[in-house]
Design a protein around this nucleic acid. Structure first.
Length: 415
DNA sequence: CTCGCGGAACGAACCACACTGCCCT
DNA sequence: TGAGGGCAGTGTGGTTCGTTCCGCG
């Protein structure tokens, strides 16, 4: 949880919904909470800009950041000079307020950019299901993305893997005139300037890698996307959508790929489509130039992700909970843990980390990793329900009525 | 340093059957 | 063009089995 929107898994999260215990971007917040009368009553507030995982409750006027209680306490401790900072209570809201209404709720909440539509609202257009969705036949020859060579690879991968042979499968797409999400190109001073950008090379103030890796569960994203489809009945091959609608920019946070991290860029060129998604999910993948064992873990996960998708589909659903969750949690190697600091602590330079603390943190990380349980995502609850009650012999299902040695319901054995 | 052995760890396979999606009429 | 039937493929969990890895003598 934190930083990346729990719903779309793509955009930076901005608000926190206590009822859903979810971090959401503005567009998903509006989408989710406009679903029905009950969801409209969910109380939301800004997300803490320091830990990116807790609801903010105060706004520091001096630092211009929204903070949760913990981060506020940490940052404005009486022993520090920051204790005199002026802070403003952040009110929660419900319903589906516009950006303008939000800015009326929170005076510090700046209005959307000059285009009159915030990035998230632009994104809302991208994510909106009820409108502007047209179903078109997939024609790989139409795919003309050509931002750079890396993306050309993407196209090739799509051609190879995503074309349903002969079935003429349909897909949803965003109208071509729709501008690509520009969230990541937000000008300074916009609403999102306090949010870290997506570019992998960016250092995120107040954002620990722990937030990104340790607490971030790719499976969660997967599930959310799938729920998205279930909820709205729309087939949304998310990454494809982004790629084909210029969304690659949003994935990388820049239109100029040359500006991207060289490591990341190289990976993109070499690995094709998936890597962009990976980097969107794992913005800090190449950030840690401090690469050590942690970095190797990340690299592994990237390669795994890429390989899997290069041979199958770019779709999120290509990730099985069984494998991806584990792998991604594997990549949850937390530099913050390695640093032996809680995730809400501001990042510090590696050189400042005492080696003893580091080794101690490494040990703790290994312990945590050992005890971590990789949950399997169940795609069909009905099948699970049946399997849960099905009788077995030596673990294998048996025909109804046949003798069994294990009954999940009674924990009894018939023979 | 190499080899063999035992234990631990891990993943694949197996089973029945409801469900899904595609194809054909 | 839509509806309906047929059919092949998929996914679900507990257990077993085979393979790999690691430590020890």
């Amino acid at each position: 949880m934190g930083y990346i929107c729990d719903f779309c898994g793509d955009q930076p999260s901005l608000v926190y919904c206590r009822s859903d215990a979810a971090c959401l971007c503005l567009s998903c917040d509006r989408n989710v909470h406009s679903a029905n009368a009950l969801s409209k009553r969910h109380s939301r507030t800004l997300l803490c800009e320091r830990c990116n995982s807790q609801p903010a409750f105060v706004r520091c006027a001096e630092e211009k950041v929204s903070l949760c209680q913990n981060c506020d306490w940490m940052g404005h401790d009486a022993s520090t000079s920051n204790s005199t900072h002026k802070r403003q209570t952040i009110n929660s809201y419900s319903g589906c307020p516009s950006s303008g209404e939000l800015s009326s709720i929170w005076s510090f909440f700046s209005q959307p950019d000059s285009a009159g539509e915030s990035a998230c609202e632009q994104e809302l257009g991208l994510m909106s299901i009820s409108e502007n969705i047209e179903s078109t036949s997939w024609d790989p020859t139409v795919n003309t993305i050509s931002h750079n060579s890396a993306v050309v690879v993407v196209v090739e991968v799509n051609d190879d893997c995503n074309v349903d042979k002969g079935s003429g499968w349909t897909r949803t797409s965003i109208p071509e005139h729709r501008p690509a999400p520009q969230l990541l190109d937000q000008p300074a001073g916009s609403t999102y300037t306090s949010l870290p950008k997506f570019c992998p090379q960016t250092k995120y103030p107040g954002l620990s890698e722990d937030d990104l890796y340790d607490d971030f569960n790719i499976d969660e994203v997967d599930l959310n996307l799938e729920n998205y489809e279930e909820l709205f009945g729309v087939t949304l091959n998310h990454s494809e959508e982004l790629l084909e609608n210029g969304g690659i920019d949003s994935l990388f946070g820049t239109k100029d790929m040359s500006a991207a991290d060289s490591t990341c860029q190289g990976a993109v060129a070499a690995e094709g489509s998936s890597i962009g998604l990976v980097n969107a999910i794992q913005p800090a993948c190449s950030n840690a130039a401090s690469a050590d064992s942690v970095m190797s873990n990340k690299t592994d996960s990237i390669l795994y992700f890429t390989t899997k998708h290069a041979h199958s589909s770019l779709s999120f659903s290509g990730l099985t909970g069984e494998s991806s969750a584990g792998d991604y949690q594997d990549c949850g190697a937390s530099s913050m843990l390695l640093m032996g600091e809680p995730p809400w602590c501001p990042p510090c330079t590696e050189s400042s980390i005492p080696s003893a603390t580091r080794s101690d943190a490494v040990m703790r990380y290994k312990e945590k990793k050992k005890t971590r349980k990789f949950e399997k995502r169940v795609r069909y609850a009905s099948r699970k329900a049946r399997a849960d009650v099905r009788k077995r012999v030596k673990g294998r299902f048996v025909k109804a009525g046949d003798a069994y040695d294990y009954d999940p319901l009674n924990q009894t054995r018939s023979c």
